[in-house]
Design a protein around this nucleic acid. Sequence first.
DNA 1: GCAAAAGTGTTTTGGCTACACCCATGG
DNA 2: CCATGGGTGTAGCCAAAACACTTTTGC
Lengths: 292, 292
Amino acid sequence: MAAVSRYQRKKHGMGFGNVSERRSAPPQVGVSVVILALGPGDAGNSGASPDAARSQLWMPLVKRVRQPFMGCWALPGGHLRADRSLEQSAFEALESTTALHPRYLEQLYTFGDPDRSHGGLPMVSIVYWALVEQSEATAFEDGDNVRWFPEDDLPRLAFDHRTIIEYALERLRSKIEYSDVATRLLGPTFTLRQLHDVYEAIAGQSIDLANFRRKMLASGDLEDTGMKRREGRQRPAAVYRYVPEESVNPATRAVFERPGFHTSDRTGMAAEHRRNTTHDDALAPLIPSAQR
Amino acid sequence: MAAVSRYQRKKHGMGFGNVSERRSAPPQVGVSVVILALGPGDAGNSGASPDAARSQLWMPLVKRVRQPFMGCWALPGGHLRADRSLEQSAFEALESTTALHPRYLEQLYTFGDPDRSHGGLPMVSIVYWALVEQSEATAFEDGDNVRWFPEDDLPRLAFDHRTIIEYALERLRSKIEYSDVATRLLGPTFTLRQLHDVYEAIAGQSIDLANFRRKMLASGDLEDTGMKRREGRQRPAAVYRYVPEESVNPATRAVFERPGFHTSDRTGMAAEHRRNTTHDDALAPLIPSAQR
DNA sequence: GCAAAAGTGTTTTGGCTACACCCATGG
DNA sequence: CCATGGGTGTAGCCAAAACACTTTTGC
């Protein structure tokens, strides 16, 4: 991290002409997205390593085809269009570069320090993070300019994108503790073991399965679908669906809500993107989800 | 909230000329700040009501002098300058409109839906929130265009600023549970009762004082200054200072840090603003603080 | 001594951890 | 009948809640 920072400063001093001129120009506004999915780990894979190697988070990156940082990998992104909401812009940036359909989309942070630009125009990046389900990620074919990388083996990244990714991962790690984001990395239904593996992948450490299942069931947000599913060759496991707690009292519920951040009427998101959108989580500003 | 939303849409359709033209223009970028301080409650006030009426959060707002929303109150703000960091811009917006010195400053959220503009140019607002200490807030003289309002009695607000304020309050409420933000509403030293009152003011409910003091002391982040202070006419209380937990192991600490968000070298904040800045809280992106 | 706030002790509870254990299924 | 994963039981620990209690001060 420190190395990146030093590199930035060095480059700045390297005599690009008219720096002060560019610095006073109005800032450009871009939208970038950190897209995360569960990699093809052992989960759901019959021929996996017997050692129960933990699944990992993967993310798609795009190769830069121009300066600065030509040849480096970068977060998918695009420009902000004035007639689109920020979420919509993020959605479009995500879709046009990767053709993926996120099951979760949330604003992460806005970066805008002048030294991000590296001799280019001053740049403000509104960054979102997204989760796509495992099946979609594993079906994805890498191309020349878009490729998936595992969380712990990222290539050389453009700008401060390394920092941004770290931040997104941290946000995910903290958010699994009090929301349903983990389920967004799986399909609409899942076994408790699958969910458990997601938590382990995100947390990066082992979690007692027995206690995990009790805690999850005690939360009251999981509903037994009545179906059974077999991962390996053993006893089939019960299949659950995430169902948020009923809000008994609207007044009570209001305390936990963020007005204006997750009701579809105020998102400004176009209808074709809003299809199948759920708003079950008070902590999720906007959640484009697949079928439920 | 719903009413505001409806109003917005109505206004949009009301025949301002060339709406589509304006909508495709590049977005303007502004910076706004939600500034919060403890109001002149009973704490530190000898002639207060005997009923122990809880202190409250207050915030300064500025009156708009032009359309849209002329005459309404709004969050202090300014334009984003390309040669300043976002935090610096927020700091300047805050200082130029209110002349206050925040002890805490953190990015809140970026708002940018097209329907925020109300017929004006498409507008992206990068919103920060700030805490100033009580003494500075009570010393502030209201003017014609800048006035303090209590959290629960806000005037008619411009744009979606009502929503933004609610969100800032929610962030504060959740953040007192795992960081030292509460202390930023007081001076550098304080008694446990003062701190307790801050927590009650923010949470909006009573908190058992005996348990509160134990919990705070057990956290290990409070240091007894050895001094005593008397609020009323009774027994003097011990005065504490906030001292963050020592990071024994740098590797362990790294897990809790957000690289790039709270080391002064990367903030880009000008030196004169960085004076007396502390970086004790891994959760605080940047903390301009008064003397410590 | 009395009121009021500072500060301490004590019991109970509920959630979480660790880990032992039984059950269902395919081979 | 055994290996493997699904699923349950349970004892111990610890943090927080509730509230009774002692201490220090000004008047």
